[in-house]
Nucleic acid binder design. Structure first.
Lengths: 220, 220, 220, 220
DNA sequence: TATGAATGAGACTTCATTCAT
DNA sequence: TATGAATGAAGTCTCATTCAT
């Protein structure tokens, strides 16, 4: 995810300092965003001298990429752990979104950082989204194979539903600075998600065939 | 939307200069983002002297807000025009998304700017999203009243589907620098959207209670 | 000589400030050398704000090149004026060296700066020496054509004698911080120079074949 | 030459490390000059840890002085060996210049370093030149005593001819990055040098009185 | 001796904004 | 209105040197 592998600290003391810097950076980025974040602020928060920063990182972008990679990894972990604990697809879906919202509430940093990353570190941002989608789409594809969900295109559906979750989280957690998503909003979203995925008996139209996106030409 | 109403230009020459600056600013913001955009770049692109900028705008944030407001207004206009031209809900839905993707392809600025605005001008960003949702949710509420769609919560559905469209646009238009969304992706997304909204006969699953969020966010 | 043409000041005030900066830079470079010279020192000496520097110059190297170009031009002017006022070659030679030493005594900057320029701005340094040699070699070639001097290779002789003058100036003006070169040193040097150039009847020694360089290096 | 005598290494390992550092420093100084040379670069090139540097040297200037002293010593050795192998003065002259140019071609470091040393370590630079001149002037004085050359002032002549050689070497070896001086240039220079020194019967002009510099620089 | 993390002064540069013309 | 010179705070980064291990 990061272009250059993180320098390994060669000393326990070094490792400790490096970790303190990362922690401080996450906090500063979360609070004031990438551009307002200065190395001075980060080192002050970490309680080390300015020059020490450059012993461990080559610059602001490098530590940013590492923070993003970290957060991205953690949110993926949280989501996949949660959803894989539930056997049925709908349940897994609910658990995954639940985990995502929890993580968002506890680490608003991810949100605020990712949305800034477009001009700062497009690679990091694209990797973040792509990694999440990969796991999500794989789950959807499997579910589709089992007939648990409608034959939607897994990749497109994954991007679409991730986008849905993202804006809902932004609106009801970040903007409200809430500790979690309101239950009714969560259920309303699940209703939409379930509608999008659940196998249905359509009142009209042929049941969609097809697997890959290209040949999928949904009617309507 | 903007805190201070835009200064009206006193003379035709002034109005022309002001317009040139706005145009230049939109281009610069789109190209390099808010933070890399400097007043010097904007004035150079507009072909006016540096000092002239401050004759027309109080600062960088002011012109940014105005550019965002502009773009936001235009995308809303494009979407509502497109969807209101179609009578049935599904058709309106398709037309609205279509217009959104078109606009995105033609004005990547909106995307790139909005996602930066969080730390620069949260009001502008929230206004942008809220305004779009307002119109969207109103349409959904009306459709629901007519029985054209399932009884989803209009506000939550609007945020969710806007999010879906946003990420799909980011992935397949911005990242690919495409001139429009690929047809198969568009249809795959429409399939998801339709699944989320279309009235169905469920084969299984608890009929989720219609969310009670409506009081939180007055839809309309 | 300078790669990029100097920005023309578009205002009398601007021109004044620019000149003040150049003057200050010459003094600072002379005093502490290129590397110890900081923009801060230059602007302080010029009595302008730090940022003002960058209104007129793109950086330290740019102003350095301009200062070098200036000094180089002035010393050439001084030398050619002096030597062209004297008809005979030996007299011209003496006058040229005299002018060079005078200039050196009055503007030690040139010396100290040029010898630093190798790593800083090789182009500027090479241009300086090459320009001096050009004029010098042309004079020697003409004198040779008239039979005023021995048939030495004008270019090689010009570089050699310039080198001789340079070290003599360094040793007896710069190192001694003298106001001018000691008369006896001057005469002793002139003796050497005259020996090198004056037409002679050799009493002994193999009459060296007139160097074979002449064909290789077109002597003007 | 150097203010503080070089610390003797206490152990064989220490001596090896010290030598590695000196070698690395010579290379780094030659490549990027004094100011761009950093202790980090030197230690990296030497393959030792940063802190190790200060075990052997007190700082950057100290190692610089030692490198300069080394090179200066080696070039003097090369020149005196070469010239002392030839009995007649003109032959010795030619051999000395030849050796100087050879050394220059093989160790451009000397050149580049010395010309930087003015602001870094004037003592080292002055010592370098003075040492060379001492030997050179002594040789000239002896030759003059034997009547091998004209009665020029030995010290002034030594400085002058050293300057001549220096610029010729700079122009045709350093700037051209040549492996040696072109033969024709060498001969043309020797022609000039011989003209300057060789005993002659002047066809015209007063035979200049031997300069009175002798008090300044005792010849012998 | 050797190591490498830590330090902090100081350098360069940018840029939003002011102001006299 | 328009101009462009002037300002100076703030930011990033380097690097010689110290020090604990």
């Amino acid at each position: 995810m990061t272009a250059t592998a993180p320098r390994p600290a060669r000393t326990p003391r070094g490792a400790r300092t490096r970790a303190r810097l990362l922690e401080a950076a996450e906090h500063v980025f979360e609070t004031v965003g990438y551009h307002e974040a200065s190395i001075v602020k980060i080192t002050e928060e970490a309680g080390v001298a300015l020059g020490t920063f450059y012993v461990h990182f080559s610059g602001k972008k490098e530590i940013f990429d590492e923070v993003v990679g970290d957060l991205s990894h953690r949110v993926r972990q949280a989501m996949s752990e949660a959803s894989s604990a539930v056997p049925d697809r709908i349940g897994a879906e609910r658990a995954g979104f639940r985990a995502f919202f929890r993580f968002t509430a506890e680490h608003p940093a991810l949100y605020r950082i990712i949305r800034q990353a477009e001009f700062v570190s497009p690679e990091a941002m694209q990797a973040h989204y792509a990694n999440i989608v990969d796991g999500y789409a794989a789950g959807l594809a499997a579910a589709r194979g089992r007939g648990d969900i409608r034959p939607v295109d897994p990749t497109v559906a994954a991007w679409a539903l991730m986008g849905a979750g993202e804006l809902i989280g932004m609106r009801w957690i970040l903007w409200e600075q809430a500790a979690d998503i309101p239950e009714d909003v969560y259920e309303a979203l699940m209703d939409v998600v379930q509608g999008a995925l659940a196998p249905t008996t359509r009142t009209a139209g042929p049941s969609l065939p097809s697997a890959t996106t290209t040949d999928t030409r949904p009617d309507l």
